[in-house]
Design a protein around this nucleic acid. Structure first.
Lengths: 141, 141, 141, 141
DNA sequence: GTGGTCTAGACCACT
DNA sequence: GTGGTCTAGACCACC
């Protein structure tokens, strides 16, 4: 297996969503390449110590989303990379998430410097985790 | 009424949360000032075409959070701003939104510097819209 | 089940508040430990002969307050203890109870020294019951 | 009028209860003596800027409780002092209020020293208010 | 099975 | 009139 999933059973995000996010992230940052095979539902469920239904649901969602392809009797594979957007298009698509995040931060009473601080802290923790988690890091700075 | 609430019944976020978020944001950005009265539970429920209990629940949550004060027989009012949660707790509550935003950004192929750039751009535009809050929100160093 | 809830349907305090107070007290005095599972909403509702919504509301409040964590599909659990509210906010929340107690004491003709004496006596008996809880807490902003 | 009531319209305690508590307190600490006349409902309502119904309800409760007597066409008067309890009896009667207060404090995460501190602060503020409040205004309807 | 959300309608407390 | 509490019963999301 090319990458390792880390789920937090106690987290607020549902497990199936954690799996989806991590697979999608790995696929879009190159940690997983087109055609790579994913562990089977049963195997991954065992590794993560979660219910197989939960993994199956995550895979199904990823297939519906176009990130994975499932080949009957073979397993689940990373789908061909989708088209790359222009920067402007990417920014446009990021906008709702950005607005939601900033709104939440403001509503919680955070101010500019604290927001930057939180972002840095999160980016920092990702940068730390990434190299240890895969041989191949597309990450830079 | 000083502001207008808009809910999307079909959205993924529950109605009561949509109300909470909008009131909280309005209160923390100055669209609503301390002491402002909110529409009564029944009135707002009628406007939004939802059950009064749903509005009441949202108001009750906002009272518990310290955003609103309710005066029995009088109505609900925006509370004086005060620090309710420890910084640690506010960070904890911001975490899901932060994670969601960064996930989305990375999934769209953004890297650290671009994420920072997007954040700065958003903070900058907010500072222009609400200059009265700028000494708190948009300040730089 | 590690502890027993008892509600008085005829009491002045609302049922959901009675539940909240008892769980909160049990959690803060060590009768319930971090990680302990609470009876399910439906089970507890049946035991107390109240509507499940009432129990659910109490649990939801306790989650918002940081006393419980709920894991979807699993149940409600006692959360790790953490500082949620600023000291200022905790004082604010204590004020009504403090005022009520002092009023009652003065109405019964107690004076300052006697009130202190009564408090000391009560604190002393608690220290004997739960000696493990007598030293923590800190402060924050 | 022998004493001055101070109500806080924004407080959590209902206004009628604030009136009750203060009159009861004044009567049991001697600020008001047996036979003293209280301001009429209308006058007091005007002074406190509250609804006359609210004052009337407070007076009615105090009469029911035995603290006041109402003489038709004359007004409300402080009733004869009720019997004095032994210290043990007074302590017994204080116990529920004491327990409730300490429980609330513990549930909010307060420890012994902080509880003492809160009590001292409250006693101190009462000591300050009391002497200034005894001046006699001597007007009557 | 678990908790989460919403509706409908009732009754109470406060002003 | 206002907000607060409770019941009954429905449907959904997660595991």
């Amino acid at each position: 297996m090319k990458f390792k999933l880390a789920i937090s059973p106690g987290a607020s995000a549902p497990i199936y969503k954690q799996i989806i996010d991590q697979v999608r992230l790995a696929a879009s940052t190159g940690k997983l390449d087109s055609g790579d095979q994913l562990p089977s539902v049963r195997i991954l469920a065992e590794e993560l110590v979660v219910n197989p239904n939960t993994v199956a649901r995550a895979y199904a969602d990823l297939v519906r989303e176009g990130v994975l392809e499932s080949r009957h009797g073979k397993g689940a594979f990373v789908a061909r990379r989708r088209k790359v957007f222009t920067k402007q298009e990417r920014l446009r698509r990021l906008e709702p998430a950005l607005q939601a995040f900033v709104n939440e931060a403001l509503a919680l009473g955070f101010l500019g410097p604290e927001i930057r601080e939180a972002i840095e802290s999160k980016l920092g923790s990702l940068a730390q985790e990434a190299p240890n988690r895969t041989e191949e890091v597309g990450d830079e700075e």
